[in-house]
Amino acid sequence: MASILTVPSRRLDRQRLQDAAFRGTTQLFALGVLVLLGGIVMALAVGAVPAFRRFGWAFLTSDAWNPVTEQFGGLPAIYGTLVTSLIAMLIGIPLAFGIAVFLTELCPPALRRPIGTLIELLAAIPSIIYGIWGLFVLAPVLQLTVQPMLIDILGDLPVIGALFSGPPLGLGVLTAGIILGFMVLPFIAAVVRDVFSTVPAMLRESAYGIGATTAEVVRHIVLPYTRAGVIGGIMLGLGRALGETMAVTFVIGNAHRIKASLLAPGTTISATLANEFTEAVGTLYTSSLIALGFILFVITFIVLAAAKLMLLRLEQEAAK
């Protein structure tokens, strides 16, 4: 006599099949993510081949951008991308740190959640809004007040002067860097605040217990403990700044030139793509644009991979 607890083997087989099918489906989609990234890299690489074959490594060092003679070089775009991101970091990191310190050490607990939410809302604002705000509000203010001031005060100094020379246009590398700084600020602040709060209370309180001031606790206890995570957060912000398109396109001035002055117009890789891609005529021009996209992808990939590794290391250390 069969026990009531025995499941008919046909039913079991069917269930096993269903399980395998489900697992296979999820595996398929998961692999699809890999295929997607691979596809993007391949599509970019293939599209960039004509440009690289024609110009070789010179594409990275040439500052020509002449659709008439079909001479293209990526240097102005790469330079602009790096410089605007650098300015963004110089502005965003101190502000983000200040906010993180305020929220974790100073802020009364009742206000912590609302202020934290407000800062995170900064991250939710679409980048195109930053762009038009920069164009309509920030650029005129810079052109009429801040930039003339910078030129007057700093323009004649020996080394720094070169950074602040030229007519005040309102648009340019500096303006783009400032807008980018405001954009990445909430991202870095969110990550830094999160890693700051992973510091065990006991560590911090022992420091306070021996009489350390808040600033000293942050500098000597919190920061060293969260070093990997903080650097990871910074690099996440950097990755974001490098790839940002719309906020920059509005205010950078669209000039394929490298000038020492921060007040000069310039361009970034993504702004160049946004402006010129739908209109590039000729295989070499289009291929040069895709090559720029490929370079941007490589740069952001390296930065993001490094950030991810840093954050992974922090997670492992915290788990210990």
Binding site: V68, T69, N254, P265, N275, E276, E279, V281
Partner: peptide
């Protein structure tokens, strides 16, 4: 030179 897109020696670009 003369074309739809040239290498401008100076200035700002608008779309």
């Amino acid at each position: 030179g003369n074309s739809t897109s040239v290498e401008w020696p100076t200035g700002i670009g608008g779309k």
